[in-house]
Design a binder for these strands. Structure first.
Lengths: 340, 340
DNA sequence: ACGTGCCAGGAAAGCGCTTACCTCTGGAGG
DNA sequence: CCTCCAGAGGTAAGCGCTTTCCTGGCACGT
């Protein structure tokens, strides 16, 4: 492993000179030396030790991202936005998967802090768990005190920058859309109840029911994992419990896809017999059959905005909270109820 | 930013002692001191500087992963496998997206090298571009010389560990399946021609044609981007160019989903009028309508194996090359040709 | 009583860089 | 001809840790 000193020796110059050249520092260096040094760098295949550089200069460059799971399309889209902006700024992104384990999330925050990343963006639902939330908040605040920037996506708690998707409003949109189509009872397939995303979306659904004087009911809720298989299972029990159900709201599109699979397996026509609406509008949602009606969240844009927030000059005053608009997208999986 | 020295001062001990305690080194430390130090650590909210640690000890812990794009389901699945194993070994994973830009790929290899990662795994197709390939190979070899481990997924060139998916065989399987169903001319929608994955899969297709004495033809190839929209566009031109086409082979499932969208838009029944087969078997493929027939690659397993290879004790002798088996999965998008 | 080991703890030498500061040119200006 | 200064390069002090080696006590053996 060649070091700076090796290069310096080989070129017959001091390490300072080599350092200046490879970082092309503002300090002028003669052309002759520069060439000698560059030649030595090439011969020795010198690759500077980034850890030593980080330690020596004070600056922080990489940025850390903690998501629940990159392979989930929801996070994949957000991450794509994050990455794009980071790359434009010449920043390396370190992606960490917490797999929805709060402890692992905490551990990753420590880790990114320890690695002196310039910023941490935390994407994904918060937890209904006060001790965890408090610990996380403390860690984040400490990190900020040492000069780190933080942005959270989709959680309320933290004091720093935040992008908050309109989950509650989105829930309202979904229920309202179904009601307008003539449905009066909605079966809900929800994610884990300890996630704030779940409860936020649910409360939007419920508010819609209240707004319509309870001619609409959203009482039937089935909780499962936020994923295709969870959606499939939840749909199955929902169907068994509520004969004649005409509408299902899934709290995310992955679950909706699972619901579709269940419905198809049972030979229940969508939207002929049952209407289905999802949430998020992930890329694939337009390609399933029937194309999924859903509440759209600008996923990639959310990523872009979060990264921009965290990379903006610190001059900007105070923590920013931006909202990401939820919009209704009606495609082919929703229709008026089948009149029995 | 509290440092080790701060903690030592606060606890009234030497930095050596603090270091021993926080790393719980084998060297024994008295109980009284240990408590004092731990208290100081807590009060000062000390978080060790990982860069300094890396520099001081010789070991490397993180591992780097370079993929074309994590938000692509193909890579998302592989990454999931990689992550799982890394996590089991307590390793941090740094994920880098090259967005299929060879230069960026090279830059990332340098970057990961510079950051002293323990290993680099390069996932995704290689390029038909000798200079690039040579440069990459040189960098990788240099990295290995300095003690780094490398594994590549899905490319032949490099000398180190490799997982090679049976792309050629998979192509053969796809074409052969279609032939057995009675199709004699296959329209192919392919990814970029400079990717080895594209050409490998294509040559499998062609071999199948030869094997069947050219009663089968795979001459009609449309190149586009490896993605949903690329697949859609390619299918469109294919359909225009070859009237009466009864079978389409897409070189990956994303393209196949795009093909499905195009076919649906044109009102062409699948598999009634046109049969469609994909490649990869990404998770969503079972949920589109009709469920996609495809050539399955054990994506997550590939990730698992690659990471295991790279994390195995160096004692193991020589570079390993493992194959990932391609298997035919016939679902609902393929059938016998419609006899005109 | 004195040596002999052992053990807890500290001193200090790095790890591979960056950079503030110093030194030594040589040429311009008087 | 001397002074002064700018430019080119080097010296060395860190950055925040880890770890080797050393020291000073202490309990033990004789």
């Amino acid at each position: 492993m060649a070091t700076l000193a090796d290069v310096a020796r080989r070129a017959g110059v001091s390490t300072a000179t080599v350092s200046r050249i490879i970082n092309n520092s503002p300090k002028p260096v003669g052309e002759a030396l520069r060439e000698r040094v560059l030649a030595a760098v090439a011969e020795l295949q010198f690759v500077p030790n980034a850890n030593a550089q980080q330690l020596a200069r004070a600056d922080r460059t990489a940025v850390g991202v903690v998501v629940h799971d990159v392979s989930d399309p929801y996070f994949a889209e957000i991450t794509r936005g994050l990455q794009r902006v980071a790359t434009e700024h010449g920043r390396l992104v370190i992606i960490c998967n917490s797999y929805r384990d709060p402890e692992r999330e905490l551990a990753y925050v420590d880790l990114l802090h320890a690695h002196q990343t310039a910023a941490i963006v935390l994407a994904g639902s918060g937890y209904h768990d006060a001790p965890i939330t408090a610990r996380l908040d403390r860690k984040l605040r400490l990190y900020e005190d040492t000069g780190g920037r933080v942005a959270v996506i989709g959680r309320h708690q933290h004091a720093g920058d935040a992008i908050v998707p309109e989950n509650e409003h989105g829930g309202w949109l979904a229920a309202d859309a179904l009601y307008r189509l003539g449905h009066t009872t909605i079966g809900v397939i929800a994610g884990p109840r300890h996630l704030t995303t779940t409860t936020d979306r649910l409360s939007g659904l419920r508010r819609a029911a209240r707004d319509h004087g309870h001619r609409l009911t959203t009482r039937h809720i089935e909780y499962a994992d936020f994923g295709r298989d969870g959606g499939m299972a939840a749909t199955s029990t929902l169907l068994d419990r509520i004969p004649g159900l005409t509408a299902i709201a899934a709290l995310n599109d992955s679950m909706a896809v699972g619901a579709l699979a269940c419905l198809r397996a049972r030979g229940i026509d969508v939207p002929g017999r049952v209407s289905l609406i999802g949430f998020d509008d992930m890329p694939i949602s337009v390609d399933v059959t029937p194309a999924l009606s859903t509440v759209r969240l600008p996923l990639e844009e959310i990523g872009v905005r979060a990264m921009s927030l965290v990379l903006r000059s610190p001059a900007t005053d105070g923590p920013q909270v931006e909202h990401a608009e939820a919009t209704l997208v009606l495609r082919d999986s929703t229709a008026g109820p089948y009149s029995a």
